[in-house]
Design a protein around this nucleic acid. Structure first.
Lengths: 244, 244
DNA sequence: AAACAGTATTGACGTGGATCAAAGGGCTCC
DNA sequence: GGAGCCCTTTGATCCACGTCAATACTGTTT
């Protein structure tokens, strides 16, 4: 898999103003002059290899991270060893917001593939967002969006059946790939069935069976991690027409 | 029930600086001078009767709300009618953060008893938090805390059994009552079994049975909505010693 | 004080997803 | 390019919780 990832030349500083993710990321809504100020703040970039931690639960919180390339999962681990994936993050999305509240991270962030993040020192971000109104507002929107997303996951975990959960997951992935200029109907999942299951509150076998069922019904074509969505309206119908 | 709520004299302006909730609320960490500035911003107070909405999903977002008296639930409703309680909020906690991301609220906030909130116009809050560093930071902490809380709920919904969920819920309520100067072991729940069930991803019958089981085992004394916790360590044991 | 409606408890039974188990396939790493 | 391991699929069985149903309680209304 490593060989599929195009090599990024780190030495060349890729400024926010040049970044093709700026419409999805923190710079959204800033004017060119403001983006330059943000650029100065984004001190460094960090490469994280597949399966490595960007941060761990308990680590001191110092920065938030914008994903420049690759993807991550976040998870929470209980004392007795049980763990739960709380989210999957793609390029342009921000990681680390959980750490603000206690100055320590409360979850783990792990790369699903070789990845790269922009490090945004948090005290400097607060400083700049006191000066730049649009940055302040965009940051608040990003935090709020995370809260809204979490509510959606609660809905999913609390009141949907297994196949509904998987349908919602696939539609969500499709929508996020689309926003990044990729195909809405064909994509490659970077996480395992076990990780999907953990996120959806299901066992990996149940996820696998649901995929098989979707395939039988002609909703998707599944080949391991390659997904082709054949019937988007069909998947949406699964979600809304709850036969209860 | 209405008659139990002490009458609050609205005409007397209760400033943040005088409010006994300030340690739990937005003013936390501000110096007296800064609190005065916050006071000017908190334009008005609003009384919400039991079962009434503070805001509805879809409403324009203009302000966040700090609970001065009473308590609320928030819920999300799907097109097909299914709904899910996403949280219960007590005095000093902040409502409405979900609205920042799209300028529209994405959930409903409903009073569980006759309640009162402080209305904090959001654009003015952003304005002031550009000037007052400690306010900015406290606000960010509050948003982050909500994200961390949501992750805990995901953990609960995704990987705990019914009795573990209820134990976690009771311990959480106990801890929050304690923080407000009430008894850690004896309190009155303002929500129904159905609402608890919705929050915990369980049916009301399952909640009721779990309560009965806890009672049989001497963990709690339950009398309708009156709860007396008899064995806190026992409840905690239920959570951590997962017999899987 | 009686009547009501909403809330709670408890029992009997059904089922969706978990668990246990085994085999096959595809990555990854050397 | 091959060996090993992790990941995935599929089947058989089990059980926790949901569903359906009946009864009882509590606080509110009149």
């Amino acid at each position: 898999m490593k060989s599929v990832i195009p090599v990024t030349v780190v030495d060349i500083k890729v400024a926010c103003s040049q970044c093709n993710l700026r419409e999805l990321c923190l710079p959204f809504g800033l004017d060119p002059n403001e983006i330059d100020q943000l650029d100065e703040l984004v001190g460094s970039r960090r490469k994280i290899k597949r399966q490595q931690h960007l941060y761990r639960s308990g680590d001191n919180f110092e920065a938030i991270y914008a994903i420049r390339a690759g993807s991550f999962k976040t998870d929470v681990i209980l004392e007795d060893g049980r763990d739960q994936v709380t989210g999957f993050q793609m390029t342009g999305e921000v990681l680390g917001l959980d750490g603000i509240s206690t100055e320590h991270h409360s979850c783990n962030a792990i790369a699903l593939e070789d990845s790269e993040v922009c490090v945004i020192p948090f005290n400097r971000l607060e400083e700049l967002s006191r000066e730049v109104e649009s940055l302040q507002h965009q940051f608040h929107k990003i935090m709020s969006r995370e809260i809204v997303r979490d509510h959606g996951v609660m809905m999913l975990l609390g009141s949907m059946r297994a196949e509904e959960r998987l349908a919602a997951f696939l539609l969500n992935m499709s929508q996020r790939f689309t926003a990044r200029g990729f195909s809405p109907s064909e994509f490659h999942l970077r996480m395992t069935r076990d990780e999907i299951g953990s996120y959806l509150g299901l066992k990996l076998e149940t996820v696998s069976r649901a995929f098989s069922r979707f395939q039988e019904e002609g909703l998707v074509a599944v080949q391991q991690k390659h997904i082709r969505i054949l019937d988007t309206p069909g998947l949406k119908r699964l979600l809304n027409h709850h036969a209860a």
